[in-house]
Design a protein around this nucleic acid. Structure first.
Length: 420
DNA sequence: TCTGGGGTCCTAGGACCC
DNA sequence: TCTGGGGTCCTAGGACCC
C-alpha cells in the first residue's frame, strides 16, 4: 500500500510554526516578487482569498480581515521540507519525495491497521516538525492522491487520514470524486471529458481503453488503470538527474537597459551553473528567454527565445555566461520595457559521455578549481558572495521585490530565534 | 502601480540516414 | 511514366504537476 503524505497549506504552515501568535489566524504567502497569492491557510481561504490571483486584487480583503501576509521564504520552506522527509523516512518502508511538501510512502507490509498507521504518521510529523499533514492510503499512487484529497475534507485536522483499502471503498470514493480533481487531469482535459459526459473519476474509469489511448495518450491510459487499482507507476526512490535546469525571474521593475538585463542574466546563469555542478552534469545547450510585461496592455509586447549549442558540454559558469550573453544579444531589441529574463540549460550529460571538439579549448583544471572555490565560498558565506564580474553590482535595480519576508529561522545563524 | 517559478512527459512532423 | 521501407534524432508545442 502507498500513503501520500502532504503538508496542509505548506508555506503558510511553515510561517506559523515560528509564529505561535498566528495559530488559528489567517495567513497568506505571496509568490516571488510579491506577485500572486500562492498559499493560504484554511482561515484565509474561508475569507475568500483567491489562490493564484494577484496580490493587489486580494490586498483590500486581506487588510480588512487582518490576514498576515508573507513574501516567499524558500530557504525556510526547503529546510522544513527536508525535516518532514527525514521524519517520513523513519516511518515508511521506502519513500519518494514527490514535491517540496509531498511524499509517497510505502507502507510497511506488517502494518495491519492502515488508519492507525496514518495517524501515527500525522502525529510524528507534527511532533518532530510542528507541521500538520494529511495522509491518503491506497493501492496505487493515483488512488492515494484521491484518498489524500478526501482526508483533507475533514475539518478536524486530527482526522486528516483516509484509507481506500477494498473494492467497496474504492468504488464509493471514485463515484463521488470530480474528475477534474484527479491527479493528471488538468483544465484542458477536464473540458474535453465534460463534453463526453465524464464528470466523476468513476465515469472516467468506464471509458473504453481505445478512446482513452487515442485522446489522452498512454498517460491517460496509465491513469485509468491506476484508478482501477492496478499499479502503473512505481515509486521513484532515488530522484533521477534533472534533464533541464533553469532560472527565469521577473524583475522588481521593468527594465529597458540591455546592460542591466545582461547582469541579471549572468546572475541567473551562475545559479544554474551551481545547480548543474551539484548534480554533476554538463550542459550541451543553453536557451535564453526574454519577455515584456504581458499584462500591460498599453505597452508594446515582445517575447523571444534563442537556443545556443555549446561547442563542448560544460559546467563552467564563465563559459556558460559567455554563451548566454551571445544569446541575449541575438534576441534583445531596444525600445521595449522588459519584465523577465531567463536561462535554461539542457542537453545535460555526464562528464564521461562528452564528445570532444577538435577546435575547442578545454577551460582546464584551473577553471574547475575556480568553480569549486566559488561554490565552497558561497556555501559557507552566503549566496553570490563570490560571483562573476558579469553579474555586476547593480542588483538593487532588478532584484525581486520581497517586502514581507520572514527570518530564515533554521538556516541563518543570525536569524535564529532567541527564547527567554 | 502591482500579475510566480521550476520542472516533466508525450506526440507530431521534419530532416536525415542507409 | 513509374519513385520503398525502416529507421533515428531533433524540435516545437501542448498538456500536466506543485
Amino acid at each position: 500500500m502507498i500513503a501520500l503524505v502532504d503538508v496542509n497549506s505548506f508555506y503558510a504552515s511553515c510561517e506559523q510554526v515560528f509564529r505561535p501568535d498566528l495559530r488559528g489566524r489567517p495567513v497568506a504567502v505571496l509568490s516571488n516578487n510579491d506577485g500572486c497569492v500562492i498559499a493560504a491557510n484554511r482561515e484565509a481561504k474561508t475569507l475568500g482569498i483567491s489562490m493564484g490571483r494577484p496580490a493587489f486584487e486580494n490586498m483590500t480583503l486581506m487588510e480588512s480581515h487582518g490576514v498576515t501576509v508573507f513574501s516567499s521564504n524558500y530557504p525556510l520552506y526547503g529546510d522544513m521540507s527536508q525535516r518532514v522527509m527525514e521524519t517520513l523516512a523513519t516511518l515508511g518502508a521506502s519513500l519518494e519525495v514527490y514535491s517540496i511538501d509531498e511524499a509517497f510512502v510505502e507502507v510497511p507490509v506488517l502494518e495491519s491497521d492502515l488508519t492507525a498507521y496514518g495517524h501515527r504518521v500525522r502525529e510524528r510529523v507534527m511532533q518532530w516538525t510542528g507541521l500538520p499533514v494529511g495522509v491518503g492510503i491506497a493501492e496505487t499512487k493515483a488512488l492515494a492522491k484521491v484518498a489524500n484529497h478526501l482526508a483533507k475534507r475533514e475539518r478536524d485536522r486530527t482526522r486528516n487520514v483516509f484509507v481506500i483499502a477494498d473494492e467497496a471503498s474504492r468504488a464509493a470514493a471514485l463515484a463521488a470524486f470530480p474528475v477534474e480533481e484527479v491527479w493528471g487531469i488538468g483544465r484542458r482535459i477536464a473540458e474535453r471529458l465534460a463534453r463526453h459526459g465524464v464528470r466523476t473519476a468513476a465515469d472516467f474509469t468506464r471509458l473504453p481503453d481505445a478512446w482513452v489511448r487515442k485522446e489522452l495518450t498512454v498517460v491517460g491510459l496509465r491513469l485509468k488503470r491506476e484508478l482501477l487499482g492496478e499499479p502503473q507507476l512505481a515509486l521513484e526512490l532515488t530522484p533521477p538527474a534533472k534533464q533541464m535546469i533553469g532560472t527565469a525571474k521577473s524583475f522588481g521593475q521593468t527594465l529597458e537597459d540591455e546592460g542591466l538585463i545582461r547582469e541579471a542574466l549572468a546572475y541567473y546563469v551562475a545559479e544554474c551553473g551551481e545547480k548543474l555542478r551539484r548534480q554533476g552534469s554538463l550542459a550541451g545547450h543553453l536557451t535564453v528567454y526574454l519577455e515584456t510585461n504581458r499584462f500591460r496592455e498599453g505597452d508594446a509586447q515582445y517575447v523571444n527565445q534563442t537556443k545556443v549549442r555549446l561547442p563542448v558540454p560544460t559546467d563552467d559558469t564563465l563559459e556558460l555566461t559567455r554563451h548566454a550573453e551571445r544569446g541575449l544579444e541575438r534576441i534583445f531589441r531596444a525600445g521595449y520595457r522588459y519584465k523577465k529574463v531567463g536561462v535554461w540549460l539542457s542537453g545535460l550529460v555526464r562528464p564521461g559521455a562528452v564528445q570532444q571538439d577538435l577546435f575547442a579549448v578545454d577551460p582546464g583544471l584551473h577553471r574547475r578549481k575556480v568553480m569549486g572555490v566559488m561554490d565552497a565560498v558561497n556555501q559557507k558565506y552566503g549566496k553570490a558572495v563570490l560571483r562573476t564580474a558579469a553579474a555586476g553590482f547593480r542588483r538593487e535595480q532588478w532584484k525581486l521585490r520581497q517586502e514581507r519576508v520572514s527570518p530564515c529561522y533554521t538556516t541563518r545563524l543570525e536569524e535564529v530565534m532567541t527564547v527567554r
